[in-house]
């Protein structure tokens, strides 16, 4: 048991190291010079001040150091909780920006994914046995899942917001509203939250329900299900067993989805101009903001790893077969 977890933990540490290293290297391999672009924004006329300013910022951000030193500093800062300073929103700290954006993303995606997971599994399992549901909900699921998400989001924003004015077109809350624990602010948050939530929910609901339907149909055809029915077990028991076994592969899918949630859904947040992490990634990439991009990616890396670790533990609990391999590892 302990050895199993130690081995797993070792693997996660290795994955974290590799992820962070790649995260550190990628912006430096990208074409373009962010400091030059930043200094250009000051619109200096002559070369002298430009060069002086460039050198100043280059040194301030530590980009003048040899790569090994930069790498070392990067880890050092990381362990002190320092993800650097944003160029694009200079002199805002990256950690502050992530802390501001993350609640929007989490509040938008975590409920959308969990709710679509729970409902999709339930409805999918029901559709496996009921023709009516199979012929109504499932085709809708296929439709939503097959639709390019950006198109669905745009169509929703256009018809439900721009044309019908049922929902606001963009933003996380009404412009000019002071944030605080007031009814006006919270209702505005919910009002802006609903449409992006709905589009994400619909798309992922389609995926879960289709997957679950097929898994349950497979499980209901297995030998153990036939045996139970041959011995006169009630349908409820057979369905309970089938559901329980069918949900296992879905659980691995949930782990991956929840992990990537942390990074936000770029398309959703860009379409609805929603102030979450996805939107921040988009801004950071277009503005070549190394520190910000790296900071968000670290957040994603940690998110994926933690989600996987949690699901690893949950899996041991729900699928006894994994416990067997664990004993094998400990033996």
């Amino acid at each position: 048991m302990t050895r199993y977890f130690a081995r797993k933990l070792g693997l996660y540490v290795l994955a974290f190291w590799a992820g962070v290293t790649i995260d550190w290297a990628i912006p430096r391999l990208m074409p373009g010079n962010p400091i030059a672009a930043y200094v250009d924004r000051f619109a200096l006329n002559s070369q002298g001040p430009w060069t002086a300013l460039y050198k100043l910022f280059d040194k301030a951000f530590g980009y003048n150091l040899p790569l090994w030193d930069q790498y070392w500093h990067y880890w050092d800062n990381l362990f002190h909780g320092n993800l650097g300073i944003s160029l694009y929103a200079f002199p805002e700290k990256v950690t502050t920006m992530i802390a501001q954006a993350a609640p929007y993303t989490l509040a938008l995606l975590v409920p959308a994914i969990l709710l679509s997971y729970v409902l999709g599994n339930r409805i999918g399992a029901m559709a496996a046995r009921r023709k009516v549901l199979d012929n109504t909900v499932l085709p809708l699921g296929y439709l939503f899942q097959a639709m390019p998400y950006a198109w669905l989001a745009l169509a929703a924003a256009f018809y439900l917001a721009a044309v019908e004015h049922w929902f606001p077109v963009e933003g996380g809350y009404a412009a000019g509203l002071a944030s605080g624990f007031t009814w006006a602010y919270i209702s505005s948050l919910l009002y802006h939250w609903f449409l992006p939530f709905l589009t994400v929910f619909l798309v992922s609901f389609g995926g879960w329900s289709i997957g679950m339907r097929n898994l349950v149909i497979y499980e209901l055809e297995t030998d153990y299900a036939r045996y139970l029915r041959a011995l006169g077990a009630r349908g409820r028991l057979v369905r309970r067993y089938a559901y329980r076994n069918a949900v296992l592969p879905q659980l691995s899918g949930l782990a991956l989805q929840l992990g990537t949630v942390i990074g936000g859904n770029i398309v959703t947040e860009v379409v609805f101009n929603y102030p979450g992490l996805g939107h921040l990634i988009y801004t950071a990439a277009t503005d070549q903001d190394y520190a910000l991009l790296q900071g968000i990616f670290i957040f994603i890396i940690v998110g994926v790893l933690v989600a996987n670790f949690v699901i690893d533990i949950v899996y041991i609990w729900v699928d006894p077969r994994t416990r067997l391999s664990m004993q094998g590892a400990a033996a």
Binding site: D223, Y224, R226, Y227, L228, Y241, R321
Partner: peptide, 16 residues
């Protein structure tokens, strides 16, 4: 009652 042809896989793998 029956001992089915598939008796070796007749038990639900996730239940004792």
């Amino acid at each position: 009652s029956i001992i089915p042809q598939y008796a070796m896989s007749a038990l639900n793998p996730t239940k004792k």
